[in-house]
Design a protein around this nucleic acid. Structure first.
Length: 653
DNA sequence: AGATTTACTATTTTT
DNA sequence: TAGTAAATCT
């Protein structure tokens, strides 16, 4: 363990800019920003300037002489954190990059690194992909299918989900399965075996997943020594989007704040849309229980939306069972009512959206001020085709992640091999890119590499019958040697990979290979902001399946955003279209329990409150591409629940 | 023929 | 990504 700088207390001597808080904030916001000390709960509705409150509070604390490195700021995305720090920096006129800001996972990564020697992070459950587990799973599947149960064994993502929920909620496995996947109840014992295996596997490979990051930090903070050390160190803790934190995250917050109690959490229970991964808006209530002396600030002024949009939005959540009593007051002048329109089919829906976007563009609204939101990725398919046809520039913020990033992952796997030659998954992924090398040969090669003290040399000494395989191995050997030589520069390594084989591989396999090559060049540029390969790789892991766009912001500014509602969290546009507001699609057809329906309703609320000026609610009456063979679609029950007077109905011809 | 690779299908929301 | 069917190699 490194006795790190954490113990040193550096007084913040530089002088910060004076800030006129009265000028910049309304009285509600100002009260929260100028909160002096002790626990505080900021209940802020949609569009009320939550981010502004946190940004200004950071500036306020700095102005009071708090050293930025002793502030802990947890947010929902790392991107949001960086943006806040950037803005706070410019407010006070100082570089605040020493401030601890990021997602809980990022912050945990930093803290754990100071205390342990973990090699890497694997957010993926696929390390379970080994012969013995697979055998076990196969047998169960066959048995179930024989009994007439079509479901067989749950997919890996279901296992991941169960595991994650089990860790994040601290509920035992039986409970989690019963609650989330009752279909698989009789498999609990098997799950236990698999999870033990998974645990063992992670230890062997010295890897952690997303859940481990929170779990181990929580455990670490149970050690009195560490709790005291960090509890003393962090003078102020700020948490944004508190309604979407899970149990572990709430515990981490409490433990970190257990000495100074200077915790400010900001949230809106109506915008809690992540319970599927363990988020609990009850954390807001529990916070009050934990600290009865909590000061509560409510911010009810909405700056974002027109009164019409706002009244539609508030009617969506008015029946919500749990809510703090807070309203939303519009300050903007009256304007047009939101539009509801039924479309004949999904193509008409797409063409309506495209048509409307072009008209609004003609009227002077830039493409970048318009967005189309939907419940899940596949809802954007027809729309993308329509936009391409009409040459409307767009950026897809969502998407089939693995598809999008296959190329990124391929490149990264080679970097991982260089960084840690004992990374089985990286080897296997990399090897399988070459012709004639599949599952079996890759495994064979890996065994050779694993047992050899010089992994690279091992490749040369392999006895392989097939000429084609020998040829591929020779190629791999050469590529890896080249990478070894350019080890000092990550971007150079990436260039090497492109030059040596990957550009060619892409061209042969993907019609959109140009875009992908461009992505990889972006990746190379991005890598230059990191000093070590290890740092770069762990950042990429933490970004999860970082989507090309969100990672590199490829959009040149002038593009319509297509996004899932979940991805649109915290963002706003002048014009918002919400599509596929049809029964079984929104809410998602598997939402059965009333909690699930409530959450879907909040997803709808989040979608609606992204709109500043104009809101269009659309649904198709028929569907050709529906996976459940419902040819006729009814409007979403959420539409039925709306007050007729809150929207204007358009008929499309 | 048997082993292995490759091609093709479908997918809730995500740090 | 993952499961399966088809294609291909020895």
């Amino acid at each position: 363990m490194s006795k790190s700088k954490v113990y040193q207390i550096t007084p913040f001597v530089e002088t910060a800019n004076e800030i006129d808080f009265e000028e910049a904030l309304n009285p509600e916001q100002r009260a929260a920003v100028l909160h002096d000390s002790g626990p505080a709960l900021v209940l802020a509705g949609a569009g009320s300037g939550k981010t502004r409150v946190i940004t200004y509070r950071v500036a306020y604390l700095i102005n009071k002489g708090i050293s930025p490195s002793r502030i802990f700021l947890a947010t929902f995305t790392n991107r949001a954190a960086k943006e806040m720090v950037r803005r706070a920096s410019s407010l006070v006129g100082l570089d605040l990059s020493s401030l601890w800001a990021g997602t809980f996972h990022h912050l945990s990564n930093l803290l754990l690194r100071k205390n342990a020697s973990f090699i890497g992070y694997s957010p993926s459950f696929t390390i379970l992909d080994r012969e013995d587990s697979r055998e076990l799973i196969k047998n169960i599947r066959n048995e179930r299918v024989k009994k007439g149960d079509k479901k067989g064994f749950p997919r890996a993502n279901v296992l991941q989900d169960i595991h994650s929920f089990h860790i994040n909620t601290k509920k035992n496995l039986d409970e989690v399965v019963l609650e989330k996947y009752p279909d698989f109840v009789e498999m609990i014992e098997v799950f236990k075996v698999i999870f033990q295996d998974y645990q063992k596997r992670k230890k062997e490979l010295n890897l952690m997943d997303f859940d481990d990051l929170l779990y181990y930090l929580d455990i670490l903070l149970d050690e009195p020594r560490f709790r005291e050390m960090y509890g003393n160190y962090f003078l102020h803790i700020l948490v944004d989007e508190y309604q979407d934190t899970n149990l572990l995250q709430a515990e981490i917050v409490q433990k970190l704040g257990s000495i100074h109690h200077n915790i400010m959490v900001v949230g809106d229970e109506h915008q809690s849309i992540y319970s599927f991964r363990g988020a609990r808006f009850q954390n807001l209530l529990d916070f009050l229980k934990e600290y009865p002396e909590t000061k509560i600030y409510t911010i009810e002024t909405n700056y974002r939306s027109t009164p019409e949009i706002l009244s539609l939005a508030t009617s969506i959540v008015s029946s919500s069972r749990f809510s703090f009593k807070k309203g939303l007051r519009p300050v903007r002048p009256e304007s047009e009512k939101p539009v509801l329109a039924a479309c004949q089919d999904v193509y008409q829906q797409a063409s309506f959206v495209a048509q409307r976007i072009l008209e609004l563009y003609e009227e002077g609204i830039p493409f970048s001020e318009m967005a189309v939101l939907y419940r899940n990725h596949f809802h954007s398919m027809e729309l993308q085709m329509e936009f391409i046809r009409r040459e409307i520039p767009f950026t897809v913020r969502s998407g089939l992640r693995f598809f999008e990033q296959a190329h990124i992952k391929d490149i990264v796997s080679f970097l991982k091999i260089i960084q840690n030659p004992k990374d089985e998954l990286a080897w296997k992924r990399g090897l399988k890119l070459f012709s004639s090398i599949g599952e079996k040969t890759a495994h064979q090669i890996w065994e050779k590499v694993r047992t050899s003290s010089l992994p690279l040399k091992a490749l040369g000494g392999m006895e392989i019958k097939r000429e084609a395989i020998r040829e591929s191995i020779r190629e791999i050997y050469e590529i890896l040697s080249r990478l070894e030589r350019s080890k000092d520069s990550i971007s150079l390594m990436i260039e090497e990979l492109l030059d040596s084989f990957y550009a060619q591989y892409l061209e042969a396999n993907y019609p959109n290979w140009r875009v992908r090559v461009e992505d990889i060049k972006q990746l190379a540029r991005y890598s230059e902001t990191f000093s070590t390969l290890e740092e770069f790789l762990s950042e990429l892991s933490l970004m999860g399946g970082a989507r090309g766009e969100s990672m590199f912001a490829r959009e040149d500014g002038e593009a319509v955003i297509l996004s899932t509602v979940h991805q649109a969290k915290g963002l706003e546009w002048k014009v918002v279209f919400i599509i596929w507001l049809a029964e079984n699609h929104f809410p998602y057809y598997k939402s059965i329990t009333s909690e699930e329906i409530e959450e879907e309703r909040r997803v709808f609320y989040v979608a609606v409150t992204r709109a500043k000026d104009l809101l269009y609610l659309l649904y198709p009456l028929t569907s050709g591409s529906d996976p459940h063979n419902f040819l006729l679609l009814k409007p979403s029950p959420f539409i039925d629940d709306l007050d007729d007077s809150s929207y204007q109905e358009w008929s499309i011809t």
